[in-house]
Design a protein around this nucleic acid. Structure first.
Length: 864
RNA sequence: GCGAGAGUGGCGGAAUUGGUAGACGCGCUGGACUUAGAAUCCAGUGGGGCAACCCGUGCGAGUUCGAGUCUCGCCUUUCGCACCA
């Protein structure tokens, strides 16, 4: 065994061993329990960042831990390879997105492999490969057959200068990100997936998904946004037009308190009224432009204008004035609301501003009502008052009665409304999966026959930022109508990249099958046992995947409802940000690697200077690592300097995996130091003679104490890794064990055997976290086997037994002493020896002992 | 605005079921080795006090023999949602 810890050599050797022996290549084995451990696949942006290291290390620790428990573990990897950044890079560098993407994948694959992940690389997929995306197209066609996919016009952001559609994030303050031109809204035909028809199922299932964080389940429930109420109609007849203004309410019991109706600026009634009223037309236009952000939208003042039109109350028949309100959303419900100022805060604010009547119709017991100021209880449920026939009814009774009466009048019915919209998947972009449709002058939009799949995306186009290059590519565009055979034009829209990521976890089970999207192997591996990824995907990706899985189930392709049994959301990686604000121009950010931080020993003040020029830079605090703040740490530099094991150990030790992780160069040093200490401990042990097998008979107390700590550590690490997922405390426990072993100076063969057992436990417990160095150390400890094939160590319960235990003694709840008692001592004996303790007697003095509380095995509290 | 979580040494964090607050690591201080050291090893390290002890988990109350942990009110902060009718 070498004296020096040499990570580069050790890691190369271990990785070579795993690769040569195909250690992580797995196949279905019905005789064994499977464990599908999946980390969210990366977007090939160029280089790995620390967030990747953290994500994939968490997954790898679990995969290796489960493997050591005898599970048949699948841990795959792939690339979420379509998307906008490749097109932006192409515009900037003139390189085709395909080349940029494949180059990035090659770089990042090498980087990920250097971390030593226990991945079955044979199963690797990239969503931009036709072998993958042809099944996007195939399933899309199945959805068209079933009516789950359909075509409808939708609104997009249109850049009039570049003549192109912009993604929301490309619109900055209402202008195109490249051209600065005012962005227009355009209506174009798009394809939608009917996720709303699964809304109830997606919502109901959340309750049973106990393997998911509560937070994520709540976010999904809010996103789906079910609300129950009544859809009611306000009939009108003016200017020779007859109709009904529809509104949705969750508070039908307040219907007798309606004093106005408000419609959204986009509502047809607003447009109708605006035709004769230029001032109203101007207001409508202003509302449509709207404020820049949703937060502003939520906090801006309620404003409105009367339309001059009146509708009739569906129950009383009274005329009700119709206003245009800037707080009414065209995209929710019917784009119109009934105004009940007495019992809705927004309506109250609106009514106050425009002096509309406020009519109270609900009484909440013990809560006063006055129409001059709003109080939150005005919106509570109560009993109807001043509501004619409904007086005295409580909420459920009033809803039932009013719904019945509305239904009789033909002006309303119970209705459930959803916040969730159908999923628009059309993107007017090049670097994505082509939507398999052909447009024919006589047959319309015709699906591409299955036999013509995949519709191949040309990989040699270079977008220039104006329009979709597919629309200028004659080879791609030209085709024949599958139905009539006439010359036709191919659809140039591509699919949202969320489509690609909605089912990739299925494909890993059968990525080598060219004939089918999924096969029987999916039934063995799926559902995913543990899914690991960022909280930023809590809603869209996870909801779309759940939806997609259900669609495939209904098509008979899979036999389960939910794709991910357990979800783990890891925290972000943070680092300090340094900047300088020049007198003119933009803030300049400096990478922490280029900044030297000094602490003045006199006053403890920190100062930061740029290494390049020695001038001062300012600290902007600790924030998420990002390109824009230039505070990222390159994992590759870290691996080259300290090795993958140090990178893995630091990211697992510095914080619990679910919390944010603060980067710390000193912390990395500390992790590295620990590995060196572990190495040295084994080196010292084996070079001074190793150990003979352990004979458990007649151990002395020091030996028993070491064994107790060894087995206590195994128990703790097993629980921390397996149940609590607190990798940081697991590592701390092994550190404690190593500290204890270091303090123990062996004097004989028996001592050495006890140390050997302790070192083996430490190495085994750490092997999921730092697999390379433990691979080498296991050999050094005298094993011919590879640690990757070892079973997880088990706890020897007899090692945990103690003849005497320490008990804490409190007097009036404050710790005053510790006593040693026999482990099997009864409460009475413990009580007696506590009261006899000199320090306890001192504090008791001549006070009267009122009570003695004995917590067996833990403490005694003497109450005076 | 609404909802959920968090607040513990100089720092990251630990305390799992109401039972010794500060594990483990970083940093710092002192020492050893060394020509020297950012390497390594040893010792110390919440605050106050010579000590016995006292104080201490954002603030204020409460429950309890006992509260970082439970309850109520407040402050700060992070995240999510954001006029959802």
């Amino acid at each position: 065994m070498q004296e020096r810890y040499d990570p580069a050599a050790i890691e190369a050797e271990a990785q070579r061993y795993w690769t040569d022996r195909r250690c992580f290549v797995v196949a279905e084995d019905p005789a064994r329990d499977k464990y599908y451990c999946l980390s969210m696949f990366p977007y090939p942006s160029g280089r790995c960042h620390m967030g990747h290291v953290r994500n994939y290390t968490i997954g790898d620790v679990l995969a290796r831990f489960m493997r050591m428990h005898g599970k048949n573990v699948l841990q795959p990897m792939g690339w979420d390879a379509f998307g906008l950044p490749a097109e932006n890079a192409a515009i900037a560098n003139g390189v085709p997105p395909a080349k940029w993407t494949y180059d990035n994948i090659a770089t990042m694959r090498t980087q990920l492999k250097s971390l030593g992940l226990a991945v079955d690389w044979r199963r690797e997929i990239a969503t931009c490969r036709p072998e993958y995306y042809r099944w996007n197209q195939w399933l899309f066609l199945r959805m068209l057959d079933k009516g789950i996919a359909y075509r409808k016009t939708g609104v997009v952001n249109w850049d009039p200068v570049d003549q192109t559609v912009l993604a929301n994030e490309q619109v900055i303050d209402g202008r195109g990100w490249r051209t600065g031109a005012l962005v227009e809204k355009r209506e174009i035909p798009m394809y939608y997936l009917g996720i709303t028809r699964y809304a109830q199922a997606l919502l109901s299932a959340l309750d049973g998904m106990l393997g998911w964080p509560e937070r994520v389940r709540t976010m999904q429930a809010n996103w789906i946004g079910r609300s129950e109420g009544v859809n009611l109609g306000f009939p009108y007849a003016f200017d020779g037009v007859q109709g009904v203004l529809r509104a949705f309410t969750t508070r039908p019991d307040t219907i007798m308190g309606v004093t106005f109706c408000a419609v959204a600026a986009e509502h047809p009634l607003a447009a109708h009224a605006a035709r004769q009223d230029p001032a109203l037309a101007a207001f409508v236009e202003e509302c449509k432009r709207g404020p820049a952000t949703e937060a502003e939208l939520a906090t801006q003042a309620k404003r409105g204008m009367p339309t001059g039109l009146h509708v009739r109350h569906p129950l009383s028949g009274e005329p009700v004035p119709v206003w245009v309100g800037n707080y009414v959303l065209m995209t929710y419900g019917t784009g119109a609301v009934m105004g009940v100022p007495a019992h809705d805060e927004r309506d109250f604010e609106f009514a106050k501003r425009y002096s509309l009547p406020i009519k109270r119709v609900i009484e909440v017991e013990g809560k006063p009502f006055a129409s001059d100021t709003w109080h939150p209880w005005y919106a509570e449920h109560g009993r109807c008052v001043d509501s004619g026939a409904y007086d005295g009814l409580d909420y459920p009774a009033a809803v039932a009665a009013i719904a019945t009466d509305l239904a009789k009048a033909g002006l309303g019915e119970l209705q459930t409304t959803w916040r969730l919209r159908d999923w628009g998947i059309s993107r007017q972009r090049y670097w994505g999966c082509p939507i398999p449709i052909i447009h024919c002058a006589s047959c319309g939009a015709v699906p591409v026959p299955d036999s013509d799949l995949p519709v191949l995306l040309p990989e040699d186009l270079v977008p220039d930022g104006s329009g979709n290059p597919l629309a200028k590519c004659a080879e791609f565009l030209a085709c024949r109508c599958p139905r009539c055979g006439a010359a036709a034009r191919r659809e140039t829209d591509t699919m949202d990249t969320f489509v690609d990521s909605s089912w990739y976890f299925l494909r890993y089970a059968c990525s080598d099958n060219p004939r089918a999207m999924v096969d029987g192997r999916v039934g063995y591996w799926l559902p995913v046992d543990q899914y690991i990824g960022g909280i930023e995907h809590a809603i869209l990706h996870l909801l779309y995947s759940r939806f997609w899985t259900r669609v495939m189930r209904d098509l008979g392709l899979v036999s389960f409802d939910e794709p991910f049994a357990k979800l783990f959301t890891q925290g972000m990686v943070l680092n300090e940000v340094f900047y300088r604000r020049p007198p003119a121009g933009r803030v300049e950010y400096f990478n922490p690697a280029d900044v030297e931080v000094k602490i003045d020993p006199a006053d403890g003040r920190r100062s930061a200077t740029l290494r390049a020029d020695g001038t001062e830079v300012l600290s902007g605090g600790v924030v998420t690592m990002s390109k824009s703040k230039n505070n990222g740490v390159d994992p590759q530099v870290l691996v080259e300097e300290f090795g993958a094991d140090t990178a893995r150990l630091f990211t697992m030790f510095a914080a619990p995996p679910e919390q944010t992780l603060e980067w710390s160069d000193d912390g990395v040093q500390g992790a590295h130091r620990f590995i060196k200490r572990l190495w040295k401990a084994v080196y010292d042990h084996v070079t001074t003679g190793g150990a003979a097998p352990l004979d458990l008979r007649d151990l002395d107390e020091a030996q028993r104490s070491i064994r107790r700590q060894t087995h206590h550590t195994i128990a703790k690490v097993t629980d921390d890794l397996g149940r609590r997922r607190t990798f940081n405390t697991a590592i701390a426990a092994v550190m404690e064990l190593l500290n204890a072993l270091g303090r123990f100076a062996p004097r004989g063969a028996r001592d050495r055997a006890v140390i050997q057992e302790g070192l083996e436990a430490a190495v085994l417990c750490l092997s999921p976290i730092i697999p390379h160095v433990t691979h080498a150390l296991w050999r050094s400890l005298g094993h011919a086997t590879a640690i990757i094939d070892e079973r997880w160590p088990s706890v020897d319960a007899s090692a945990l037994e103690q003849a005497t235990i320490e008990i804490v003694v409190q007097v009036n709840g404050k710790r005053r002493s510790r006593i040693c008692v026999a482990a099997d001592a009864g409460g009475e004996a413990v009580r007696a020896s506590a009261l006899a303790d000199p320090n306890v007697r001192k504090f008791v003095g001549d006070g009267v002992v009122r009570k003695v509380i004995v917590v067996p095995g833990k403490l005694v509290n003497v109450v005076l």
